[in-house]
């Protein structure tokens, strides 16, 4: 593990920005570790990596990391990222967002980013609630779960993130959890490597709000539940549907080839300039 944390420290704005804002036991830090290891393994030039985020607990991540970092307005991270990427296609653009940020206020940008297929990696940390503002229900809060704005239980139905992303046209869609770290490292690594729009859902815990309001226990308990409840897609495929019901499916939901937007636009420039 010592080796792992050495890698992590190489990429942190350690002297400037710590301690961080996250609650003790929050899963977001685990996702940050996975992201760092993926970038390190890919040997990306950190001057050519831009992290873009919106608003929320997860969106605070870029400030701690020593890359080009852009912390934007609520829901708009993907739209800002689209400008960065198209204006400078050499840039590796990675968006860090949450369930409220990406799917509620940023829902429109999310589906259009999937559709447009620009080479952007979107890491969506799903903790099923608005943490920063104090535990209001989000588009992924399960039906009948409690939230500070759902004191009698959530009357709505949640999004299925991988299905939404795939239907909207993302070329790589995967889900991991903050319990299954090795898998999450790999999914983020593959997502960044993919030339096209990639969506990696990182299922995480918010014990402070979601856990407390729904009596799901502390961080450790919620991670243990994640371990119990997660089911790899490959395993699920061999199981009867009733056994899959209610499980958190993990793995790669979609990995298809489609010509990337900036490549297509670059080809247009080349042809117009007669090259």
């Amino acid at each position: 593990m010592a080796q792992r944390s050495d890698i992590t420290h190489k990429y942190l704005r350690a002297k400037k920005k710590f301690p961080n804002v996250w609650c003790a036991g929050c899963g977001i830090g685990i996702v940050m570790g996975s992201l760092i290891r993926a970038i390190d393994k890919l040997e990306l030039d950190r001057d050519n990596v831009t992290l873009v985020s919106g608003i929320g607990c997860s969106s605070r991540m870029p400030v701690y990391l020593d890359f080009n970092t852009l912390h934007t307005t609520h829901g708009r991270a993907l739209a800002f990222a689209t400008g960065v990427k198209l204006a400078n296609p050499k840039m590796h653009v990675i968006v860090i967002t949450g369930d409220g940020d990406a799917l509620a206020i940023g829902g429109n940008h999310f589906i259009h980013s999937c559709r447009r297929n620009m080479d952007i990696t979107c890491i969506l940390i799903n903790n099923q609630i608005y943490g920063m503002t104090g535990g209001q229900f989000s588009p992924t809060t399960p039906t009948d779960s409690y939230a500070s704005t759902a004191p009698y239980g959530n009357k709505e139905y949640p999004f299925d993130i991988p299905k939404l992303a795939e239907a909207a046209g993302a070329t790589y869609v995967a889900r991991g959890t903050v319990y299954h770290v090795t898998q999450l490292d790999q999914l983020i690594y593959d997502g960044i490597k993919k030339r096209g729009f990639s969506l990696v859902e990182a299922f995480s815990n918010c014990h402070t709000y979601f856990g407390r309001l729904n009596r799901l226990g502390d961080s450790v308990k919620m991670l243990e539940d994640m371990k119990k409840n997660a089911l790899p897609l490959k395993a699920a495929a061999k199981m009867p549907p009733e056994k899959v019901q209610g499980k958190l499916l993990t793995g790669v939901f979609c990995d298809v080839e489609r010509e990337e937007y900036c490549d297509r636009y670059d080809a247009l420039i080349q042809s117009l300039q007669g090259k």
């Binding site: 739209a79 800002f80 990222a81 689209t82 400008g83 198209l86 429109n108």
Partner: peptide, 12 residues
């Protein structure tokens, strides 16, 4: 999204 995109582009 339009204004967000031009801000992102300008930063590059």
């Amino acid at each position: 999204a339009s204004v967000a995109a031009i801000i992102g582009a300008s930063l590059t």
